[in-house]
Amino acid sequence: MNASPRRKELTRLAAQLFVQAGFDRTTVRMLAQEMGIKSGSLFHHFRDKQEILAAVIEEGTENALVIARKALARCDSSASARLHAMARAHLETLLTDRNAHVVALYEWRRLDPEARAHLSHLRDAYEALWEQVIDEALAEGLVHGDRFLVSRFVMGALNWTVRWYDPDGPRTPDELADELVAMITRSASVG
C-alpha cells in the first residue's frame, strides 16, 4: 500500500473517526470533512472506504508487530522476561496507536474478504509471537492450561484496557503489565 506521509495522516484521521462513529456510520463525506479535503480528493489517496479501513488496520497491526519484536529483542531469554515484554509491548501499542488498535479489534469483521485475506498474515504473525511466548511460559511452568485459551485470555485482558485504562491514572503501563503477568503466573503457582 502507498505509504506517503499524507496518506498516513489521512489514515490516522480515519482511525479516529471510525472509533468515534463506527465504520458503518462513517460516510465518505465525514471522512473528507475530518481530513480537510473534498470528497472527490479522498479517492486520490484511497480507492474506497474499504481501502481506508484496511489501511488503518494494516498500519496499526504493523506497528504492533514492530513494537513487540523490539521488546522481545531487548529482553533476556527467560520466559518470564519475554512474557512481561509482550504484555508491556501490547499496552504500548494501545497507548501509541489506540485508535488503529480499537479499529482492528472492533471493525475487523467489516473488512471485505480480499482485505481480510491480505491482512490475515499480519494478525497471524502477531498472534504467533504471543503463542511462542505462551508456549515458553507453559514449558517453564509459569502458567498452566491450554495455550489457545491462555493466549486468548491474556490478549483479551490486555485489549479490554482500551475501555478503562487511564494513562494519566495511578498505574503506569509497566505496572499494569506487571500486575497482569503476576495474576496469571500466581494462578499457575497456586494451581
Rank of each mutant, 00 (worst) to 15 (best):
F23E: 06
N2M: 03
F23S: 09
V19M: 08
Q16Y: 07
L42G: 03
H84P: 02
V66Q: 10
H44R: 15
D174P: 04
G191H: 15
E179K: 06
D174K: 09
A81N: 15
S189Y: 08
L53T: 12
E107W: 04
A64P: 04
L42M: 10
F23A: 07
V102Y: 13
V66G: 09
P170W: 01
C75M: 11
F43Q: 03
H44F: 13
R152W: 06
L138G: 00
R25W: 08
G36N: 04
G145V: 08
M30L: 04
R98W: 05
A115F: 01
R110G: 02
E51D: 06
L65K: 14
S187R: 14
V190I: 15
H45L: 00
T185P: 04
N159T: 07
E62K: 15
R152P: 00
E34A: 10
T61M: 12
E9S: 08
L31M: 10
I184H: 11
T61E: 13
N63F: 12
M86V: 11
R47K: 10
A55I: 02
K38L: 08
V133F: 02
R69S: 13
A73R: 04
A71S: 09
L65M: 13
H84S: 10
V133H: 01
L53R: 08
G145I: 03
D168E: 14
A157H: 05
K49C: 05
W164S: 05
G156D: 05
R109S: 13
T26Y: 09
C75W: 12
M1D: 08
L95K: 04
D76K: 08
L83W: 07
T185Q: 04
G40D: 11
R171L: 14
I52E: 11
G191F: 14
E136S: 10
A182F: 01
R74E: 15
A15T: 07
F46V: 00
M1W: 01
M183S: 12
Q20N: 11
T185G: 04
A125F: 01
F148S: 12
R116G: 04
T161F: 02
R6C: 02
M30Y: 01
A182C: 02
D112R: 00
C75V: 13
T93V: 11
L180A: 08
T96E: 15
A54G: 03
T161P: 04
E107I: 00
R29E: 07
H101M: 09
L83T: 02
T61I: 06
A85N: 00
E62H: 14
R110H: 13
D48M: 03
A87E: 05
R82G: 09
D174Y: 06
W164E: 03
D97C: 11
S77F: 10
M183D: 09
E107H: 10
R123H: 08
N2G: 01
H121F: 03
E136P: 03
R98F: 07
A71H: 15
V150A: 10
L142T: 02
V143C: 10
W160Q: 11
H121Y: 07
E127R: 13
D48N: 06
L111W: 05
D178W: 12
H121I: 06
S187M: 12
R25Y: 09
I184N: 09
V162A: 12
G22F: 12
L13T: 08
Q16P: 02
G145P: 06
L10H: 06
R110V: 03
N159G: 11
R110M: 11
R163M: 12
M86A: 07
E179Q: 14
N63Q: 15
T161G: 07
L105E: 12
Q132V: 06
L65G: 14
V143W: 00
